[in-house]
């Protein structure tokens, strides 16, 4: 862990007017910079989208049958 790579940032462009609006908005909040705020908002939106796109069910019917049997045997299900 000695030769650690530096944290990588890159630049995206946003309209100057939007930048000013955000700068104004984050005054007296926990956000220390427009970059921090934009990162936060983008992560939030990404997480929401990912959750919406997740599939209905991640396990097979065989799994379900086998697990339910065990859950019944252990008293978790009637």
């Amino acid at each position: 862990m000695s030769s650690k790579p530096k944290r990588k940032f890159t630049t995206v462009s946003i309209p100057k007017t939007l930048f000013e609006k955000i700068k104004d908005r984050i005054k007296n909040t926990g956000f220390s910079s427009v970059s921090d705020y934009v990162t936060y908002v983008l992560r939030e939106i990404f997480a929401e989208k990912q959750q919406q796109q997740s599939s209905e069910q991640a396990f097979s019917h065989e799994d379900e049958k086998r697990v339910k049997e065990r859950l019944r045997a252990l008293g978790y299900l009637d």
């Binding site: 991640a58 396990f59 697990v67 065990r70 859950l71 978790y76 299900l77």
Partner: peptide
């Protein structure tokens, strides 16, 4: 063992409930 559940177990349990 009788109280050991892993995520697949609990996900199926919660769904069934």
């Amino acid at each position: 063992a009788e109280v050991t559940l892993y995520p697949l177990d609990t996900r199926i349990l919660f769904k069934t409930k």
